[in-house]
Amino acid sequence: MVAEPQTIIEARNVDFYYGDFHALKNVSINIAAQEVTAMIGPSGCGKSTFLKLLNRMNDFTPGARLAGEIFISGASIYGPDADPVDIRRRVGMVFQRPNPFAKSIYDNICYGPRLVGIRKPQDLDVLVEKALRAAALWDEVKDILSKSAMELSGGQQQRVCVARALALEPEILLMDEPTSALDPIATAKVEEWIKNANLTIVIVTHNMQQAARISDRTAFFFMGELVEFGPTMELFTRPQETQTENYITGRFG
């Protein structure tokens, strides 16, 4: 047996409400460091809600209420000492649609580092190259760094967003359906990046084949509950729960 990987995110008995709506019901899960964890389930199952809780993106949602605890690297991210700004630096996020700023590629990547006080051009140059290389985009854009990020293709824009998140050297990257607005070629590039990233990635996807292709572990959510969580290959070849079986084989409801 391979040794169990180290847990970086631990959710303990998490309940979450949007007003009266009980969006997450007693969810407990340990997410491993340096692995890709996929969250699947039908619309409204709670998977995106759960993802957003991991970097406190629901803090300003009206009527939102959380019970239970979430720890990252052993520290509670909802505890009295937790600093949401610091948490969002450590836990980056990439969204469904590429959302580069209407600035140059270079300035997109520097945006976060400048906010945290990195100003020296030499330091920023190093950082931009490192982030773009990590996002597998450097070779494609190294000669056009002053070009607007808005002029890039969809797949390139999404990798600019990945690079922008990576520039802050996050411990964890959250991805909310990062390829659903991309064509198959761009999707393949982003997937390839995810597989080789050597980073803790938690990805929400509606595309089950994508979850099967790129993740180490998969969590299946249904109606706010975590129904099943396990190694991806096992979940897709011999799921333990009937609900999982019915969902992934398309025999739902």
């Binding site: 084949q209 099967a212 897709f236 070849t237 011999r238 999982t244 079986e245 992934i248 084989t249």
Partner: peptide, 9 residues
């Protein structure tokens, strides 16, 4: 159909 689970088996 990219089958999974019991269909794939």
């Amino acid at each position: 159909n990219q089958p999974v689970a019991k269909d794939l088996r």
